[in-house]
Amino acid sequence: MKKLIKEFLKGIIKENPTFVLALGLCPTLAVSVSVRNGIGMGIAAGFVLLGSNVIIAMIKNIVPERIRIPCYIVVIATFVTIAELMLKAYSPVLNRALGIYVPLIVVNCIILGRAEAYASKNSVINSLFDALGMGLGFTLALILISGIREILGSGKLFGYTIMGGVEPALLFIMPSGALLVIGLLLGLFNLFKKDRA
C-alpha cells in the first residue's frame, strides 16, 4: 500500500509531468488562458491517461514489441474519442473553448510517455495509481499556469474580476506570454530543486 501511495505522490511534485519531465506542454500552453479551461483540459487528459494506462498495463504481454506504439495509440485515441463525445454532449462551451486541443490529447506526450515508460512495464494497479498521480500533477500544473495567466492577463480569476483598477497586461493571454510564464516557472522549479538536493 505504501508503495502505491508513493506511485501516486511522485506525479504531483517529484516527477511532475509538466515542470520536471517537461511533457505535454502543447495543450498546457494553449488552453491555459483561463483557469476554467485549464481544469477542463486537466480532467479530460487525466481521464484519458487513467483509461489508457490501465488498458495498456493489461494488454502489455499480448502486444508484439514492434508494433506496440501504434497499438497504444489506438487505445489512447479510443479514450480521446470517448472524452471528445462526452465533452460535446455535456459541456459544448468548454468543448468549443478547447477547440482542436481535445483531439490533440491523443498526441499529448504525457499519455504516450507514461504508456511507454511505465504502464508497459508495471502491473495494472501500479499503473492506475501512476495515472492518478500524473493526472493530478498535470491538472495542478495547469491550474497554476492558467491562474497566473488569467490574473495577469485579464485581471480575473474564474471569470470574476479580482484586480479592479489595474490594467491587465494583455501579453499574458497571448501565446508569447504563455511561453514566458512556463519558462520562468521551470526556472523557479529548478531553483527549488537545487536548494533541496
Binding site: 490594467e167 497586461a169 494583455l170 501579453l171 499574458f172 497571448m174 508569447s176 506570454g177
Partner: peptide, 8 residues
C-alpha cells in the same frame, strides 16, 4: 514590444 503587446 512587450509594452506594445500588453497595453496597446
Amino acid at each position: 514590444v512587450f509594452l506594445m503587446a500588453s497595453w496597446p
